[in-house]
Design a protein around this nucleic acid. Sequence first.
DNA 1: CTGAAAGCGCTTACAG
DNA 2: CTGAAAGCGCTTACAG
Lengths: 348, 348
Amino acid sequence: MTGRGERPVTIYDVARAAGVSYQTVSRVINGSQEVKKSTRDAVLDTIAGLGFRPNRAARALRGGPLRSVSVLTSNTTLYGFATVLEGIEEATRDVGFRMAVRLIESVDPAEVRDAVEWAREPAGAVIVIAMAHPGMAVLDAMPPEVPAAAIIPFLPRDKVPVRPSVWIDEYAGAKEATAYLLALGHKTVHHLSIPAWTGNQRMLGWRSALEDAGAPVPTPRYGGWSADWGYDAGRKLARDTKVTAVLCGNDDIALGLMHAMLEAGRAVPGEVSIVGFDDTPLARYYTPALTTVRQDFKALGKLCVANLFPLVGQSLPGEDPEHLDAKLVIRGSTAPPRGGSASRPARK
Amino acid sequence: MTGRGERPVTIYDVARAAGVSYQTVSRVINGSQEVKKSTRDAVLDTIAGLGFRPNRAARALRGGPLRSVSVLTSNTTLYGFATVLEGIEEATRDVGFRMAVRLIESVDPAEVRDAVEWAREPAGAVIVIAMAHPGMAVLDAMPPEVPAAAIIPFLPRDKVPVRPSVWIDEYAGAKEATAYLLALGHKTVHHLSIPAWTGNQRMLGWRSALEDAGAPVPTPRYGGWSADWGYDAGRKLARDTKVTAVLCGNDDIALGLMHAMLEAGRAVPGEVSIVGFDDTPLARYYTPALTTVRQDFKALGKLCVANLFPLVGQSLPGEDPEHLDAKLVIRGSTAPPRGGSASRPARK
DNA sequence: CTGAAAGCGCTTACAG
DNA sequence: CTGAAAGCGCTTACAG
């Protein structure tokens, strides 16, 4: 019973109860090797008995390990961001770290500067979810001495990135999805992209598959992350009856597009095949069920934490990879084009 | 330019540069009234020039204002939870507070105890998102002396709740939706509920509308929050051709149900009308577009912060209400029953 | 292997 | 209105 409103238990209380100096208690809770086993056990027992928990503020002030990670992210109502965040939270909680979160809503320089200040303030570790422009801007602005790891949507530009970075191989995923549509017999595949940046792997993978097959490369459209945007863009695409297959930048966009097509009287997948990206928990319940590229966002969040920890003197057992694979999941929203001949679809 | 790797600016630096004592600097940054205006302005200028930011750890250690809120929540990949969290983050950031987040995944006593300890540790303010069982368990276990506010899914049991609590009037929303379906001519309305608890307002509102109309009250089904669960439950409902109208506990469940109905060959809304709850950004793009009860989760999160602040000596201007209204949004997933006579639907 | 000392940056009484 | 003092709980050299 820690009781109500009582003064919290400190290392001095533990020291007195265990009959040692408070320095020894400090060594025990910090896992120092130079404490005799019997002393350590006695102290540990006392800690458990008294319900002692180290005061984080005092630790931070002293310059000790803060055991905290500050996460910068945007768009947490999007499935991918929310799930990455859950992965980070679980991984940090597992090792007794706290997680602070701050949203970045734009690439406005003042907001970016503010976000960087926020992140470095408590001298803890930092994670930037740079899966959208605001996060990328913050990542660029982050001073190199800040211990930070990042989740990025493209391959690192340098062989040795400035800081630990993890990603999903969206290039391969997009390429596989596009190749699958071509193999179904579609002459080409259009692309309703998430907002564009240099090195967007989903777009590059899509283009690469098209080029490999010698198919024409339509101009991709981009502008947003939402179903709203997918619907608006979809209404324009629906007017072009030569469009028979579309790869979307995410599943929300795909839903908006599907709605626009159906509303325009174009059958899915009868006249138009649609592929999403992410495989949200809803995608399989769209009608028709959405063919999409699955990404394991939770694992990505955890992976980022594992790659961050060596920077702050923590390390988790085992070697961790830097990236995860994406995986095409075939459902009902894709089919051979009307009258088109399928050259044996590469169903795997 | 705060520069790279330099020692952070402290109140001592500011004091020296401004030619005052460090105590005076402390008074200025804490808004003390007893500082001469000219002194205050000089200090404020120096602070801006040097880019000083108070060290939060030192403040916390001293017992000063921590300016931090710790949020306990579950299920952040669900739209409602994610959006409430964004509202809390924005409101706390606006006043220079930090937000720490921890997930609670079960009602397991050990996890609940742990979560409570986590929340009280840094002596900051606490918010419990008690919109699901895990949060409710934590709220029940929270000692009264902890400065906490809560988001709850039902009316407070007592006239004067133990702590500030905010909610959305789901009772009225569910009642309105159910009455609307009855007015369309449905003999009764089934309910696929989110997990049940005593005082579930969505369920009570639904039941109340049925009773007011003298309609039979079918046994509600519940078990999960997800489209997966909605689909499983929907497959059973689809076999019962007497079911012509269903109110769902959220939009994800509604999507699963809709998929099950369509898959079973039952037309929506031709044979079965479906109403959701929440109005997620995807709901309007379901096919058919989902009639649902809109809840403003972001405003709810902000409202909770406003109600929390008086507890920690902050107060925001203006008087804040305790609850928000829900609103029926009519779209394409609802219609009069086949052959049923509509008694002039209460379209508003 | 363990104890005594210093100090992290701040705020709040306490004097003046 | 402003300065000098004490101390929050902890960790890391420094002695022994």
